[in-house]
């Protein structure tokens, strides 16, 4: 059996989401086809990740492009999330004496849930869309086929460095963004709520356990893998010129964002059971 990444793409461009004209059966078939392709690409990616020689240059380039260049968007998002969360907690729970728990609530919400999910959603938008647009442009101009024609493996050259860089950087981006969100909460505690730095920090550190950090950051490894595989799959299988690239990019943002939200539920359950 011929192993290609373009599973089923000969029947339907995977970059294009299922549409109403396909009928219910066709729609279901297209979704299953896309899902099957992504599962298969996941397997190939894992297989090639640990195969020598390692493409160090490509990894370093992607670590910079996907990781370092995402710092601003994740940090700004979480800074303001931390600030908003602190204010909302203080004012909405004021009647119940909840003001004193601002540090606890900000810390637990951010580290367990908001930090990982918001960082992943931001990365899905910025990086996922970027990967699909880049690989999609390569696919429609036959550069991916050219790579294969030159006896190079697109999974090794294009997919592994991107998925690998995402899996390495999203947890780090999340840890940094979590810290900045807590700092945002601190700013509000100091200047809006009237707490001291020591009081806020004692509640933050008192509320958090290592389990909270591990479960929050641990989820991002899975989020990163899902975003990377979805983005690469849609990119490599893009057909239909600029229009196809646009549709594939939109599809990546939608599917990877939904994947983050849905998988978050199951991963949360899993980490609660395991840790």
């Amino acid at each position: 059996m011929v192993v290609t990444i373009r599973i089923g793409a000969s029947r339907r461009p995977n970059g294009a989401p299922p549409d109403a004209s396909m009928g219910r059966a066709g729609w279901l078939f297209a979704i299953l086809q896309q899902l099957g392709g992504m599962v298969r690409l996941s397997g190939l990616t894992l297989r090639h990740t640990f195969k020598r020689p390692f493409e160090i240059d490509l990894w370093v380039e992607q670590l910079y492009q996907l990781g370092v260049r995402s710092l601003t968007i994740t940090n700004v998002t979480l800074l303001f999330t931390g600030m908003v969360l602190a204010i909302q907690t203080a004012y909405s729970l004021a009647a119940y004496g909840g003001k004193s728990f601002v540090g606890d609530i900000v810390a637990l919400s951010v580290v367990r849930e908001l930090g990982p999910v918001l960082a992943a959603l931001m990365v899905a938008g910025r990086v996922g869309a970027g990967i699909t647009a880049e690989l999609g442009s390569m696919a429609v101009t036959e550069q991916v086929d050219a790579l294969r024609a030159l006896a190079a493996n697109p999974v090794r050259k294009l997919v592994v460095p991107r998925v690998g860089a995402l899996v390495l950087t999203l947890p780090l981006l999340t840890i940094l963004a979590d810290t900045i969100a807590l700092f945002g909460g601190l700013l509000m505690a100091l200047f809006e709520i009237g707490q001291s730095r020591a009081y806020y920090m004692s509640h933050v550190l008192g509320a958090l356990t290592i389990t909270d950090v591990v479960s929050g950051v641990g989820k991002t490894v899975f989020f990163a893998f899902f975003i990377g595989v979805i983005a690469c799959y849609n990119g490599i299988n893009t057909r239909g010129g600029a229009d196809g690239v646009g549709k594939a990019t939109t599809n990546t943002v939608v599917v990877s964002s939904i994947s983050v939200i849905i998988s978050d539920f199951f991963l949360t359950k899993m980490f609660l059971l395991v840790l």
Partner: peptide, 27 residues
């Protein structure tokens, strides 16, 4: 070669070069 996978196709692809319609240069 029609049953070959990507790894098995490497030797064939080394023997056969291809000029794509629009060049397909890595931009």
């Amino acid at each position: 070669i029609q049953e070959f996978d990507e790894e098995q196709l490497i030797e064939t692809r080394k023997k056969v070069g291809m000029l794509f319609q629009a060049g397909a240069l890595f931009d």
